[in-house]
Write a protein that binds this DNA or RNA. Structure first.
Lengths: 336, 336
DNA sequence: TTGTACGCGTTATCAT
DNA sequence: ATGATAACGCGTACAA
């Protein structure tokens, strides 16, 4: 069954300590012949060290946790992929905990990560003010925030400037001649959703405009949510000439709803989102959106986490990555 | 920092053993007052047991592994979700290992799962004949196969009948009047890809047809792969009147390539795939495909795994789930 | 009803 | 260069 280090030691005719030394690279104080015998025994038995026992003794697990709101959202699966690649390069395993966009799920996930004794955590929180995250810090577990900044905690953070992005995209639509921009909101307490909304309002204000009455609806960052939100919007058809969704997945859901109703995009209504997930360019018309470097956010967050673990000093600072406007065909090049 | 059971014991004025008993549900032989004190101490310290230490002592980890070829493929993320929900209901945690559709990645993942001492594994293998999977069985780790049957191993398996599906879809296209069906293959050694191809050939043979010359190209089950495959196919434009892709993701990649070249679907070319991933119905035209119950496959596989762990006897058998043809608009209702 | 003592698999330390 | 031993945090048989 499961062989232990003792089995290997016995087969090689050495002590468990020697086996451990051979396997842990302190190879200078070992006779080549012994080394050989041990490795052969390992090979023959197909011995693989028990990670749990190792973690217990070493007092570090070699596992970092990722707390993500929705792994089925391509944006986050890309972000997690960035974390994973960088983590692997540093010898860490990655434990993914999906909160399913629910505060309770997030609390459960935090407990799970604490029980697993992860060496560090990368968090994309549902709530911008989740105080339970303090538990990590109080237990000396490194914490890095990715994509969604926290309001109450000053920890290393990798984000983009969501307000700027919301502003940027809205300005773009206004420049194209759209004037009555409906808006599909993200989850209520989510930092990115709030930032984009704020930027949208700023841009409107600069043009002495307001959100069209009854054309601001709530969503939850999912395709389904975008679909339902768009259906609600369609009851006010005529009150707006374009729809801005707080992320691409909802924009795609809206596109589906519009198609169902036979409303042509961009001829009858403009449509835009945020993230630039791959699917945004797979559909027709391709989505106008703001490209957020999800993979790179994950990668940078993991780099920061490594820096945290190494240097106790907090010379690790926030990073704000650049974004890029992606002009698809979901908005008319120029209105009249 | 990290509190241990001793800290709790000390604070509650009892022995570690008592704390353990309170927390592990053998609560009948404990004085309510003591119980109270212990729980209060746990609360105050925010104590959470170390899962690794627990696993070491209990000789089971409470973790099951999922070996998946590509978690970014919506089909598999749905399958994994099915596993997760059922696992949670049985008190198991889930460790996901992505082989990135590469045999080497799969071997690495197997080692990782062995080191983690998972209690059981659900496998969707890249190769239908991966002998390294035997390691699980030889170490007494329960093994269940999901979606892609293995050729060399008789273990509990949850699948659909891929040959039948390939046959079914092809027959449908032929009935619509399509006669020259190009085919985009899946990865060479993958069971589902091979099955669908076989069914396709069977159906063609029944109509005394053959795959059109030069219109069978290889792919890798990814969107990008489907895109590239379709571009290769387009060099033989005119040799075929429809494209069958071995999965939806590739079909969507092909759709993108066709659109880029200004080829109308279904007016100029028919298009079909397998899986019925959500996106298949989000695009326009919606894809004609065969619905494979990914979520249910995952769920059933986890159920079988539980059955394996409980009963050593192999009364656990294979399960073949039903599928359903989904008629989208990507194929013309009737040719001529 | 509660405490003592041991063992789970591994590694760091000290001794040889 | 290698072996013996303690310790990591927890659960449980057995003693009290």
């Amino acid at each position: 069954m499961g062989f232990t280090i003792k089995d290997v030691a016995e087969r090689a005719g050495v002590s468990p300590a020697t086996v451990s030394r051979v396997l842990n690279g302190q190879q200078r104080y070992i006779r080549p012949e012994t080394r050989e015998r041990v490795l052969r025994a390992v090979q023959e038995l197909g011995y693989l060290p028990d990670r749990r026992a190792q973690a217990l003794r070493r007092r570090r697990t070699g596992v970092i946790g990722v707390l993500t709101p929705d792994i089925s959202n391509p944006f986050f699966s890309l972000l997690v992929r960035g974390v994973e690649h960088e983590a692997r390069a540093h010898g860490y395993s990655v434990l993914i905990c999906d909160s399913q966009n629910a505060p309770e799920g997030e609390d459960r996930a935090i407990d799970a990560l604490l029980r697993e004794r992860v060496d560090g955590v990368i968090v994309t929180s549902v709530r911008a003010d989740n105080t339970k995250l303090l538990k990590f810090l109080s237990k000396g577990i490194a914490l890095v925030v990715a994509d969604r900044p926290l309001t109450h905690l000053d920890v290393p953070t990798v984000t983009v400037d969501n307000v700027r992005d919301g502003y940027k995209l809205t300005k773009h639509l206004l420049a194209l001649g759209y004037e009555r921009l409906a808006f599909i909101q993200g989850p209520p307490d989510t930092a990115t959703a709030l930032g984009r909304w704020t930027g949208y309002l700023q841009a409107l204000r600069e043009h002495d405009l307001e959100p069209p009455k009854g054309a601001v609806v709530s969503g939850d960052f999912t395709f389904e949510g975008g679909y339902r939100a768009a259906k609600r919007l369609l009851r006010r058809l005529g009150a707006f000439d374009a729809i801005v969704a707080a992320n691409d997945l909802m924009a795609l859901g809206a596109l589906y709803a519009l198609r169902e109703r036979g409303i042509a995009v961009p001829d009858e209504l403009g449509l835009a989102g945020f993230d630039d997930i791959p699917m945004a360019s797979w559909v027709h018309p391709r989505l106008t959106t703001v490209a957020i470097p999800a993979y790179r956010i994950g990668k940078e967050a993991m780099k920061l986490l490594c820096a945290c673990v190494r240097t106790d000093a907090d010379k690790v600072r926030h990073r704000v990555l650049p974004t890029r406007l992606v002009v698809g065909e979901s908005c008319r090049p120029s209105r009249r």
